[in-house]
């Protein structure tokens, strides 16, 4: 028992459970209003309800999840497909880089969500608008990261490869691309985060499908328990998406041990 409590993950889980129990108890005592702070048991019930019958009636959690995932993936991959090749070209061509730098900087500063009204005017309130918004946000993040990844490959590595008679496309494939990979992964991770942020706002308009729509819709029906189920589902979705990427990152930087060996 004592051994188990020494494990950090056990401590953390125990603390989390204790918090939930305290929350539940505070609700039962009437210290917390169930509408503003639905107790864990209510949230669990709402989760079951979402899985079994859905909200609004017939739209189960699974449906909302799939709709949201579909929109994010379409926008994300559209952005990747455009940004990575373009970034690789710009990053290797200093003149192009100089010409596009101010534009890229400004476009990235444009808040994606501020495009919402414009996108609605242009593309309506249907699916296309949502995908375009997500793609816009992901595109500029990925583009800047791709450019930087290629541009800042350690010149010593490139020179070392040159001395071994590697050049042209082979240099690109065997040195530049691998050296740029960590940054590309980091960019994809950030882009995904942007996608998750944008989707919620995009789904607030003109749809009742998707997790973003669900959490907004549930509130107007005073079902905050369902809103929280939607939030948690979004969080889990985010974890699922990023864990794949972070696993890759861990493989690439296994030397990062930090403070593990310091006495304090």
């Amino acid at each position: 028992m004592r051994r188990a409590l020494d494990r950090p993950s056990v401590q953390g889980a125990a603390f989390l459970v204790a918090l939930l129990l305290a929350w539940e108890a505070a609700s039962a005592q009437g210290w917390l209003r169930a509408f503003a702070f639905p107790p864990p048991s209510r949230i669990a019930e709402a989760a079951v309800e979402m899985v079994v019958s859905g909200f609004p009636e017939g739209l189960r959690l699974w449906t909302h999840l799939l709709v949201t995932v579909g929109r994010i993936l379409q926008g994300f991959f559209l952005a990747m497909a455009l940004a990575i090749p373009l970034g690789l070209v710009i990053g290797r061509a200093p003149v192009l880089d100089a010409m596009t730098a101010p534009l890229v900087t400004f476009a990235r500063s444009v808040a994606t969500l501020s495009l919402l009204p414009l996108v609605i005017v242009w593309f309506g309130i249907g699916e296309l608008s949502k995908v375009v918004l997500i793609a816009y946000g992901c595109f500029w993040v990925m583009l800047t990261n791709t450019i930087a990844a290629v541009k800042y490959v350690d010149p010593v590595l490139v020179r070392a490869a040159r001395t071994m008679d590697v050049s042209g496309p082979r240099l690109f494939a065997t040195v530049v691309l691998p050296a740029a990979t960590p940054r590309l992964l980091a960019g994809a991770r950030v882009a995904l985060g942007v996608g998750f942020m944008v989707i919620v706002a995009a789904e607030m308009i003109g749809t009742i499908q998707g997790l973003g729509a669900l959490i907004m819709e549930a509130r107007t029906f005073y079902r905050t328990d369902i809103s929280i189920v939607g939030m948690l589902a979004l969080g889990l979705l985010g974890i699922a998406f990023t864990s794949g990427l972070s696993w890759l990152e861990r493989v690439l930087i296994p030397w990062h041990t930090g403070l593990a060996g310091v006495r304090r």
Partner: peptide, 26 residues
């Protein structure tokens, strides 16, 4: 850190905008 980290890890992936309904309630 051991105590707080899991809590943060649960809350962090929830996009800020997803809090809007609860923000209005609170």
């Amino acid at each position: 850190g051991n105590l707080v980290r899991p809590l943060v890890e649960v809350l962090r992936p929830i996009p800020p905008l997803a809090w809007i309904p609860m923000a209005i309630v609170w």
